[in-house]
Simulated assay, not measured.
Amino acid sequence: MAEEKKKGFVAEFQEFIMRGNVMDLAVGVIIGGAFQSIINSLVNDIIMPCISAITGGIDFNNYFISLDGNKYATLEAAKEAGGATLNYGTFITVVINFLLMAIVIFLLVRSLNKLHDKLGKKKEEAPKPVKICPYCKSEINKDATKCPHCTSDVA
C-alpha cells in the first residue's frame, strides 16, 4: 500500500511539473534572472555614474555606518578590517535597481498590451448565432433543440 502511495505521489508530481503554467513560470524565472543582470548593469554602469556626476561625485556604495565605532574611509577598508557595517548606500542602489526594473517591465507589458489590443481589434470574431431559452432565459445555440441549462425542449 505504501508503494501505491509513492507511485501516486510521483505520478501526481510529474503531472504538476508538466503543466504548462509551471513550465512558463520556470522560463519566466530564467529570463528574469538574465533581465536582472541587464538592469544591474544599467544601474551600476550608466545611471549611478550619471547620478554621481550630477551630485558631485557621490558614490552610494560608500555610504555606510560602522557599527564597531571606528572610522573607515571606504566600505572596502571597513570590510578588510573586519568591521561590522550597516550598508545603507548599497540598499539605496538596490532600491534604484528595483524601481528601474519595475519601470522597464511596466513599459514592456504596456507595449505588449497595446500591441495585443491592436491585433485583437483586427481579429474581432463574428457574433455567435444564439437564441434565448424561453424557460430559463439562457443563451443557447440557435440550432439547439434542448436547452443545456434547464434541459427544456426548445422549438
Rank of each mutant, 00 (worst) to 15 (best):
I132L: 14
S37Y: 10
V94E: 01
P148M: 02
I46T: 08
I92M: 04
G82W: 01
G82H: 06
A102S: 12
D59K: 13
S66W: 02
L107M: 13
V95A: 15
K114V: 15
R110D: 14
V130T: 10
A102D: 07
D45G: 06
A77Y: 06
D45V: 10
D117H: 05
L115T: 14
G56R: 09
K137C: 07
N40C: 01
K5W: 01
Q14D: 09
D143C: 05
N40H: 01
D24K: 09
D143H: 11
C133D: 06
F13L: 14
S66F: 04
I47A: 05
V104W: 02
F106G: 05
N97E: 07
E4S: 11
G120H: 11
V29F: 11
D117A: 12
F35Q: 03
L75S: 11
M1A: 12
L99I: 13
H116Y: 12
L75Q: 13
S41A: 11
G83T: 10
M18A: 11
A53V: 09
T93V: 15
D24H: 07
A53D: 13
E139C: 00
D117Q: 13
I46E: 06
A78Q: 07
T93W: 02
M23G: 00
K7W: 03
I46D: 01
E80S: 12
M18D: 08
D117G: 10
C147T: 03
K123D: 11
M1W: 03
L112D: 13
G82R: 04
I54L: 14
A73K: 12
M23S: 02
G8Q: 09
Y88D: 04
G8K: 02
A84I: 04
K131D: 01
T151D: 14
H149C: 01
S66T: 10
E4M: 02
A26Y: 04
V109Y: 13
L119R: 10
K146S: 03
A2V: 10
N21R: 15
T151M: 13
H149D: 11
F64R: 05
T74C: 10
G83Y: 07
K6C: 06
L25C: 12
C136G: 06
I47L: 12
N97H: 01
V104F: 07
G8H: 02
K79W: 01
I51F: 11
M101A: 15
N87R: 13
K79I: 06
Y72T: 12
V94L: 02
Q36A: 15
K121P: 00
I92E: 01
V22W: 04
I96L: 04
T85A: 05
S37D: 14
F91C: 08
N113C: 08
G28W: 06
S41M: 11
I51Q: 05
H149K: 13
L25N: 12
K142A: 06
D117I: 08
Y88V: 08
K118G: 07
N61A: 07
K6N: 05
E139V: 00
L86R: 03
T90C: 02
I96G: 00
D117V: 03
K121E: 10
V95G: 04
C50E: 13
S152A: 14
H116L: 15
V43G: 04
G83D: 12
E4C: 00
L99P: 00
K142W: 00
A34E: 12
H149I: 14
A144W: 11
E76Q: 15
